[in-house]
């Protein structure tokens, strides 16, 4: 009895992670009923510049904080500055000013940044809140984007409503390429 208890104590970490293992197994072996049905979309979303964005699977995104942002003189007003992200010079932009065409100079508020894109088509966006895992009802998908800002409208792929908020999925690579610094 003592030996069995000792073995149990030695492998207690295994029993503590049983739930995790079950989740892992379920993640590799199959999907939930809802997902199988395709009515629910699980993806991350974040808030920036008073707008809600969805990060789809095709978009590379990384959250950074406390990055050193260097001011670029004589640049566009919406350009907060540039930052060195693992060797790549990434422009940090104020999305609200860019979309709304505000002429006042943007200021970095030392918030968290969402680094979106890969390679040369990478930009940094100042976040209002950290991204959260969201589940959208596919049936609440929006198709009319006429009310949205002209600057961003061509790049909206889709949008869902959730709790009276509209969440946009932007084709960030195209949007980035469209931006002329």
């Amino acid at each position: 009895m003592d030996t069995a208890k000792q073995i149990h104590n030695e492998n207690s970490w295994l029993f503590d992670n049983e739930k995790l293992i079950e989740k892992l197994e379920s993640a590799y072996q199959g999907t939930s009923d809802e997902k199988q049905s395709g009515s629910v979309l699980r993806c991350y979303g974040f808030k920036a510049s008073n707008m809600n964005f969805i990060i789809d699977e095709a978009t590379a995104c990384e959250i950074l904080e406390e990055s050193n942002i260097h001011f670029v003189p004589l640049s566009a007003t919406w350009l907060i500055g540039v930052s060195n992200i693992r060797g790549d010079v990434v422009p940090i932009i104020d999305l609200e000013k860019l979309i709304n065409g505000d002429d006042t100079n943007a200021e970095y508020k030392n918030r968290k940044l969402a680094i979106i894109g890969k390679g040369e088509n990478t930009i940094g966006i100042e976040l209002d809140e950290l991204p959260v895992l969201l589940e959208f009802d596919k049936r609440k998908k929006l198709n009319d984007f006429s009310n949205q800002a002209e600057r961003i409208r061509p790049f909206i792929q889709y949008a869902y409503t959730k709790d009276d908020d509209i969440w946009f999925c932007i084709n960030f690579p195209s949007f980035i390429q469209s931006i002329s610094f």
Binding site: Y44, I55, E57, A58, A60, E62, L133
Partner: peptide
């Protein structure tokens, strides 16, 4: 840690089917 886990989860999501297990860990 939260941010790291978030990044990990987002990368896992970006990885598609291959990153599903990792996404679970990241979520945890």
């Amino acid at each position: 840690t939260h941010i790291l886990a978030l990044n990990a989860s987002m990368h896992a999501s970006a990885a598609g089917e291959a990153g599903r297990g990792f996404a679970v860990v990241a979520e945890e």
